[in-house]
Amino acid sequence: FLYGQLYLVLSGLQSALLIKAHHQNMKSLETALASQSFLQLGLLTGLPMVMELGLEKGFRAALSDFILMQLQVASVFFTFSLGTKAHYYGRTILHGGAKYRPTGRKFVVFHASFTENYQLYSRSHFVKAFELIFLLIIYHLFRKSDGKFHVMVTYSTWFMAMTWLFAPFLFNPAGFAWHKIVDDWSDWNRWMMNQGGIGVQPEKSWESWWNAENAHLRYSVLSSRIIEVLLCLRFFVYQYGLVYHLKISHDNKNFLVYLLSWVVIISIVGLVKVYASS
C-alpha cells in the first residue's frame, strides 16, 4: 500500500488526481480513506473478541478487559509477532524450508542481549522497519495532499514501523539499564568483528550468521531466485523517481542525471568499504 502511494507521489499521478478532484469538487477519495483509517484503528477487527467476552462475562467486563489489554500494550506485541509470522510465512512460500520459528514470546521473560535481538529480528523486523520509515519520510517530503489526508494514510504504517523497531527493547527486562546497554554494545561489537567460517556458530560471528540467514537462497529453485531479484528491484525504481524530484537536478529529466546518482552511490559504498577494511 505504501509503495503504491509513493509511486503516485513520485510519478505525479497524485498531484494530477488531487487537482482534478479539487476542480470537480470530488470528496470520494477522502471519504474512502476516512473509512479505511477507521478500520486501521483496529476497532472493528477487535469487535469479535469484545463480543465473545461480552457474552461470557458481560459487556462491562469485556470493555474493561479490552482497555486493560491496550494499557498492557498488547497491540504492540501482537503487531510485532504478526511481523515475525508474515516474514517467515512469505519466505517459506517463496523458498520452502518450513520449520519452527520463535514468535518472540520469550523476550518478555528474561533480558536478551542486543546481539540476540539482532540475530532474531534483524531481517524480519529491523530492516523492514527502516525501509518503511524511509518510505514514509520520502512520502511526507513529496506529498501533495493536505495534513488530514496524510495522517489518515500513514499513521497505521508509522505505528507498525515503530513497533517493529522498538518492541524488542520495550519488552526486554532491564533493556534500558545503562550497565546492560554498555554490556550489550561491547558484546555486539565483538560479535560483528569475529571472523566466521567452517565450524563457527552464528551466535559467535556476524559472518556465520549472515551465511546461515541467506542459506535458503543457495538451495532455492531458479524461479524463486528470479522473484527475489524482481522484488529487490523496487529500490531502483524508486531511486529513479526520487532522483528527478531532488532540487539538484534542476528539473532536468535527462537520463544522465540518473547515471550520476549511481556514481554517487558507488562512491559512497566504496568509501564505506575502504573504511571497513582499514
Rank of each mutant, 00 (worst) to 15 (best):
G12P: 01
A16Q: 15
K20P: 03
N25I: 09
K27C: 07
T31N: 12
A32W: 04
L33D: 05
Q36A: 13
S37L: 04
S37N: 04
Q40N: 14
Q40V: 04
L41C: 14
L41Q: 13
L43H: 08
P48C: 14
P48K: 12
M49P: 03
L53M: 12
L53V: 04
L55K: 12
E56I: 11
G58I: 04
G58T: 06
F59R: 06
A61M: 06
A62G: 09
S64M: 11
A74H: 13
V76R: 01
F77A: 01
T79N: 03
L82M: 08
G90M: 05
R91L: 14
I93D: 05
L94G: 02
L94M: 14
L94N: 03
G97E: 05
A98K: 13
S113Y: 02
E116G: 00
Y118S: 09
Y118F: 10
Y121V: 00
R123G: 02
H125Y: 01
V127S: 04
V127G: 04
L132H: 01
H140T: 11
R143G: 01
K144A: 07
D146W: 10
G147T: 03
G147S: 10
G147N: 05
G147H: 09
K148T: 11
K148A: 11
V153N: 00
Y155V: 10
T157G: 01
M160R: 03
T163C: 07
F166A: 10
F171G: 00
N172Q: 04
P173Y: 09
A174K: 12
A174V: 05
F176A: 13
F176M: 11
W178N: 07
K180P: 02
I181F: 08
V182W: 14
D184G: 06
D187R: 09
W188Y: 12
R190N: 15
M192D: 04
M193H: 15
Q195I: 08
Q195V: 13
Q201Y: 07
Q201H: 13
K204I: 03
W206Q: 02
S208I: 10
A212R: 15
E213T: 14
H216V: 11
L217M: 12
S220N: 08
V221I: 13
C232D: 09
R234S: 13
F235Q: 02
F236Y: 11
V237R: 14
Y238Q: 03
G241P: 01
G241I: 06
L242H: 09
L242M: 14
V243S: 04
L246C: 10
S249E: 02
H250E: 09
D251N: 15
K253E: 15
K253S: 11
N254F: 05
L259H: 15
L259I: 07
L260V: 08
I266A: 12
V269W: 11
L271Y: 08
K273V: 06
K273E: 07
V274D: 10
V274R: 07
S278F: 10
